[in-house]
């Protein structure tokens, strides 16, 4: 528990984060590739041609829900609350387009790139964090949340 932040889950966050970092390390040291979900999703669905072999991309993308499913099986349930469908569709479109234009998302730039001290990824992470903060602030200002 963190005083003042009753909702925070620092321990679960750290443990989950270590697992995510280990997963990305396996991808890097095992297969020589960045565990960037947006790029691998595009590759797995045939929406990009370069990058990882298609089989590798499909296996990684299939693994994501598989791992989450195993946790849900062991833990009983994984709580989640989703925004309204309309918002999800708008958000999905922007996330899909933006991550391809910017060559990465939270995993590729945020975890793999930051830990490599890549200037591109440091800038990208600062920008998507910044615009994320601004977007939610705007939603609060306009009474959307």
């Amino acid at each position: 528990m963190i005083p003042g932040f009753p909702e925070a889950q620092p321990v679960a966050g750290l443990i989950g984060g270590l697992m995510i970092g280990l997963a990305a390390a396996i991808m890097l040291l095992g297969l020589g590739r960045i565990a960037g979900v947006s790029g691998l999703a595009a590759r797995a669905t045939g929406l990009s041609t370069g990058g990882a072999p298609r089989g590798v991309a499909i296996a990684f993308i299939v693994g994501l829900p598989l791992g989450a499913f195993l946790v849900a099986l062991l833990a009983g349930c994984v709580p989640a609350t989703f925004p309204a469908t309309g918002l999800l569709i708008i958000a999905g479109l922007i996330v899909g387009y933006g991550t391809r234009l910017g060559s990465g998302c939270t995993s590729g730039h945020g975890i793999c790139g930051l830990s490599r001290l890549s200037p591109r990824s440091i800038l990208a992470t600062a920008l998507f964090m910044g615009s994320g903060f601004a977007t939610v602030a705007l939603m609060r200002l306009t009474g959307m949340i």
Partner: peptide, 11 residues
Amino acid sequence: SGALFGAGLAI
């Protein structure tokens, strides 16, 4: 790698 990543996200 994908499964460990997904499990980490859920946890």
